[in-house]
């Protein structure tokens, strides 16, 4: 295993479209980093640049301290798991897993030992003689993983590997991938547009938008302490509530009001997570109307509309005490508000 370092990576496509704009990112040895962002934000391009499937316009890619920017894919010692698994349809699972070894002229006992090991690690030992078409989605996923780990590469690249699985298998595979990462101690760069995957699996999350790296850090740190409105909006489901207003240095004033010990700004945005909205009568509560209650079992989502027209979502534990049409008071729990400059979305300090 080795670390992976991207420095000032830029990719400009023909026609002037900028896919990746000056991205610097390090994935430590044995670390699991998730690259998240909306569709078209450049995260897959970064993965392809690391794999060597695309050439950067400028910048460097280093793997284990070795500059691989201009090396062809096969000399980079990286393995990639594709969204559609990219299993060779004419080969059996065994031949698929053995492929990376066979093209490196490995044969005989060593090859079959490693294939068997990889297959057993992923619990597909019984499927080795089937063709990919005879496997379920989850089994294909495992076969593709086995093909990636069999050659013991310096680092793994995952390109939305779970997005073709149904919800149940996806949740299960998430846990298994984390366990696999722990067992192999592998360096992983994992691309996904699903913030739940990123939050639950990765040690480090890097959020991208429009080719730029917005912020990176531990998942919960990004969630609690986002550097910008875009990051705050991308993480968390349902998404963070936003209310326009202004900060005075001591308070935020808008459709919702709360304490705000940040710099004064005439055009500010309050961001407040659904779990930080408190329903019920209180001194500083803003009047709102309940438009919909969505019970989820352990918690409920209460959708509200403020008098000024803003829509909010509140997350309350257990069953909600109100129902659609009720008039309620809503306020921000003390010290939980996040404040951003409306003009560029940067966090107010």
């Amino acid at each position: 295993m080795a670390d992976l370092a991207l420095a000032h990576l830029v990719k400009r496509f023909a026609g002037g479209v900028v896919g990746v704009d000056d991205v610097t990112l390090t994935v430590g040895e044995g670390a699991f980093t998730a690259l998240v962002g909306p569709s078209g934000c450049g995260k897959t391009t970064i993965l392809r640049l690391v794999a060597g499937l695309e050439e950067p316009t400028s910048g460097t890619v280093q793997i284990g301290g070795r500059d691989v920017t201009w090396l062809p894919p096969r000399e980079r010692d990286v393995a990639m798991v594709f969204q559609n698994y990219a299993l060779y349809p004419h080969l059996t699972v065994r031949e698929n897993i053995a492929f990376p070894l066979a093209v490196r002229r490995m044969a005989g006992a060593e090859l079959s030992r490693r294939v068997t090991n990889a297959a057993e690690l992923l619990e597909i030992g019984a499927l080795l003689d089937r063709k990919p078409a005879q496997l379920s989605g989850g089994q294909r996923q495992r076969a593709a993983l086995a093909r990636a780990i069999v050659r013991e590469p310096a680092c793994f690249l995952f390109d939305e590997p779970l997005s073709n699985l149904d919800a149940q298998v996806r949740a299960q595979t998430r846990a298994e991938l984390v366990a696999l990462h722990r067992r192999l101690g592998a360096t992983i760069l994992y691309v996904t547009h699903d913030q739940v995957e990123a939050m639950t699996m990765a040690q480090t999350v890097a959020v991208m938008a429009r080719g730029r790296l917005l912020q990176e850090g531990a998942p919960l740190r990004l969630y609690r302490d986002p550097a910008s409105l875009a990051v705050a909006r991308f993480l968390g489901s349902p998404s963070i509530n936003t209310v326009a207003g202004r900060t005075t240095g001591a308070r935020f004033e808008g459709a919702l009001a709360c304490e705000a010990r940040v710099a004064a700004c005439a055009d500010a945005v309050l961001g407040v997570r659904p779990e930080h909205l408190v329903l019920g009568p209180a001194m500083d509560a803003a009047p709102a109307q309940v438009t919909l209650v969505e019970p989820l079992g352990p918690e409920s989502l209460v959708r509200l509309r403020l008098r000024s027209g803003e829509e909010l979502v509140a997350r309350v534990a257990g069953e909600a005490a109100c129902c659609a049409g009720d008039a309620v008071g809503v306020r921000v729990a003390a010290g939980t508000g996040l404040f951003f400059r409306a003009a560029d979305g940067t966090r107010l300090a």
Partner: peptide, 9 residues
């Protein structure tokens, strides 16, 4: 692309 990454010339 998978074959390229798998090391095939």
């Amino acid at each position: 692309e998978a074959a390229r990454l798998d090391g095939a010339d």
